[in-house]
Structures are given as C-alpha cells and as structure tokens.
Design a protein around this nucleic acid. Sequence first.
DNA 1: CACTAGGGTGTACGTCGTACACTTGTCAAG
DNA 2: CTTGACAAGTGTACGACGTACACCCTAGTG
Lengths: 263, 263
Amino acid sequence: MGHGLPGTSGGRSQPARELETVYVVHSARRLPSGGEMSAKAEVEARSREPLSRDRILRTAVALADEGGVESISMRRIAQELGVVPMALYKHVANKDELLDGMVDVVVGEIDLPIEGTDWKNTMRERILSARRALLRHPWASRVLESRGEPTPAVIAYMDSMMGVFVAGGFSVDLMHHAMHVMGSRILGFSQELFDDTSSMPAEEAAEMWTQMADLYPNIAKLIPVATTTHDGPVVGTGCDDQFEFEFALDLILDGLERLRASR
Amino acid sequence: MGHGLPGTSGGRSQPARELETVYVVHSARRLPSGGEMSAKAEVEARSREPLSRDRILRTAVALADEGGVESISMRRIAQELGVVPMALYKHVANKDELLDGMVDVVVGEIDLPIEGTDWKNTMRERILSARRALLRHPWASRVLESRGEPTPAVIAYMDSMMGVFVAGGFSVDLMHHAMHVMGSRILGFSQELFDDTSSMPAEEAAEMWTQMADLYPNIAKLIPVATTTHDGPVVGTGCDDQFEFEFALDLILDGLERLRASR
DNA sequence: CACTAGGGTGTACGTCGTACACTTGTCAAG
DNA sequence: CTTGACAAGTGTACGACGTACACCCTAGTG
C-alpha cells in the first residue's frame, strides 16, 4: 500500500515527528525514472482507486470482519488504505458516521422480501436472510445496538417489514405491537447475555459447570441435554444457535398469527 | 462538587505537569498543627470514608445515572472522589471489572422472586422488577449488552429464572428453549433499534414522518395511532413503552405456557 | 526501634478522534 | 500559457483516554 509519491527528489527523511507513532506509509514506490508509462500502469494496478467513501467503508467492514469492532479505528483503516488518518475525513464526517455506513453495508446484504406467500413465510425468510448477513459480520449486531438513531437504511428495512405485516392483514396498531414484540429479532439477532457458545473447549466448560452445580443448579441441569442437540452432533458447548433462533422466532410468529386471526 | 479543601499552608504549586491535564486534587488536608482533633473530625466528616471498592462502584453508578455511559471514565470517577486516577486500581483491576461491578449493583436491585403463585406470575413480576431497576439506571442495559462474559450476579439471576421455569413444570430442554426465547427480555429490557421515544418534541416528529410518508409509508401510518395510547394521554412521541413491553412479554409467556401444557 | 505492607500519588507511555493549516494535483476561464 | 480556484491528501497538534511503574507515606507489627 503506498500513496503520496514524493517525487524524484529524494523524499527527505521525516522532519518533526514527536510522540505520535509513525505510520509507515512512505511511498512504497520510488520509480527511479526510466520506466515511463509502464510505471504509471503499475501504479494504477497497485490498488490505486482514489479513496472514495465506498472504498473506506469496504475496508472498514473487512477489517471488522477479521478483527472485531475494537480493531477499527480511523488510524487503522487509514493505515490499511495506505493513507494518512485525516484523509478519511474528506469522505466521512466522523467515526460515528463511518459506523453508520458500515451497518448500511450489512443491511444492504439482506435479501428483498419474497413474494407470493403468506406474511409469516415472508417474514420468516427475510429475517433468516438478515440473520445470515449478521453472521457474516459478527460485529454488526453490536454496532447496531450501540448506535443511537437508526440509519435511513435500517429505517427503510423496518418500514418494509411493517409493510409485510399490514399486507398480511394486521391492523395498524397490531402491527405496531408486533414490531415491538419482534424487537431486534426482526434484524436477525437476539442479544443473548448468556453466550453459551463460549470460547472454551466444551468438555472443559461442562466440567466447570458441574463443579459449580451447587451455585447454579439449574444451569448445571443443562449440561447433559446441551451436548446432544438437534440436527446431529454439534461443536462448541453444544447449543445449537440456529435452532434456538428459529424456535424463538416461530413461537413469536405463531403468537402473532393467533392474535391476527382473533381480531 | 467541591472536594479537596486546600488547607492553610499554601499547597505548593504543581511541580512538573506536562501535557496531561491536571485534576485538582492536591492533598485535601494539610492541618498545620494547632487544631488537634477538631480538624481531624472535620476531615472525617467531609466524606472521608477511605475509598473502598464499594464507594467507587456507587459513585460510578451515580455518575452514569446522570451522565450516561460515555461520561464514566476512570479519571472522571477519581475526580469525583477527590482522588488521583491510579488510586482506583488498588480496588478494581481495570475498567472492565469496574463496569462488571456496576451492573452487579443494578442486578442487586432486582427483587427476589415472589412465591406462592404460578410460574407465569412469578416470572412476570420479577421481570417487571428488573425492568424497573433498568429504568432507574438507563445506561445499564447498554453496558450489559456490551460485556462479553456475564458476571456471577447475572449468572445467578439467570439460574434463578431457570429455576422458576422448571418449578413451573417445564422439562429441562423446554426450559432451555424458553430462556433463548426470552433473550434479554428476561432482564427487563428489549433492545429497540427503533427508539420512538426520541428526544424530539413529538409534534415535530409527527410532522417529520408525515413529510417522509412517501419514503416510509408504513411508519407514517403509525402517526395517528401512536398519539392516542393506552392508559391516558402520554408525553413523548406517544409510544407507551411500558405497555409495549408488557404486551410482548405476555405474548411470549402465553406462547411458552401453551408449549408447556402440550407436553 | 526498624520492617513491612497496603493505600494513595506522580509521571509517563501509547492510543484514540479530530481540529486546523498546509501542499499538491486537476481543470476551467482568462 | 498562465492563473487561480477547488478538491483531495498531508502534517502537526491537542486533549482525552486506560493503565504500567516507581515512589511515597502511614499504620501496624515484630
């Protein structure tokens, strides 16, 4: 990654540089004259798209995908792009706006609602699609939660989901309640507080809980059942997240259908 | 908040101080001999409990209550306690542990489960109690979500709730599913993505949405219905959060009861 | 009395977001 | 061809942050 070609006249060693760490950007390309236009072509090839908002967002997403939320800082992103941190501010207002942009990328990956089925199916499928998107970008749910106002893309998604309800025969205020019941699940995630897909080696975790059986007797009860899950043996502590999500989703959708039918 | 009475003997101007902002703490007690025990008594009286983990937690909670999550930093808390930032580290390991301690304070405010009713009532009442606690400390849900591993207090709470399920006749694995269905709602909150209790003056918000009616037609449909809520006229954008929460809670509990009965 | 241990202090480092002033590359109007 | 405006990228600096590390200073023990 290089930028800011310093020209032929020997780029002068960094001048001041106090306290702040230096992000080694320094040109990457010296081109000692000679190779005329082939040099230019090479420069072009070397990821020389001119740093658009879109490019920033894409690298930010990629960075978060592989390093989690806490690994995205303006400085890291800039470094990844071979550019000085402040350059980003020509394309995004500030970090919050960048985060918003990132969730918009993810929301943009959600499939459009399918057509020609009943509301429940439409809802279900789209939510599962949203879930797939969020599983591809595990940081996204956290960022979504932490954001204050939802972005236009999120609002549009919500609106479209409301549309599914009313098209399915919900009265406006039942639809309103329904949205609240769904909560964040409508975006394909449920915040679990209790992350039984911990990083521990399952075996070890089971051991741990049985040891604490006197402190947490009911959690301990889960151990035997949690290791034999549906659709085959499962890695991890043995809690089939996908099954649990769909179970909860169906319970709620069924409840809503019952309410809809009884009005 | 005044703290740190500077004493009579001119507290020696700060010596070095480079770059870092100075938190005016400067010794608090010089007692220039003379006034023997009355000086000491006064010092004692002026909130001079000796800075325990508990005191730190309490001030942190108070600080967050009135300034939100982003207003709690080690430095702010230390300042509030009239102490140097590093002093805190003699009582809490680091900021994460402090946050954990803070959620434990809140969780500690949740009532114990009532006895002598059916599982649904017990569940319902305790969740509503949790909700009350979280409304008293609006930052808590966010912190709770952001934490990776739950604290022992949270685990204990969860375990106790599981106990309510099994005592109510749930099989162990139905109880397991039930916990997933409840999600964070079991702690009294549902993350809403869509904060219709915005800071806007309601009137103005309605105006805004009607203007955007072509972009978000279904949200716009909510306007008339949202301004006339249950249990009387309501301030804000007219979405009765408490009603919505209980509506969703009851829908889920009813769904679970149906499942329980059918096994 | 010397020793020790624990709580409070001071200084420093590395990181962060970002304000502000600058250079530089591009292109239209004179 | 000059000029000069505009946008994009750079450099430096500031004030916050969490916290490591070395230092006191006191109280309590032998």
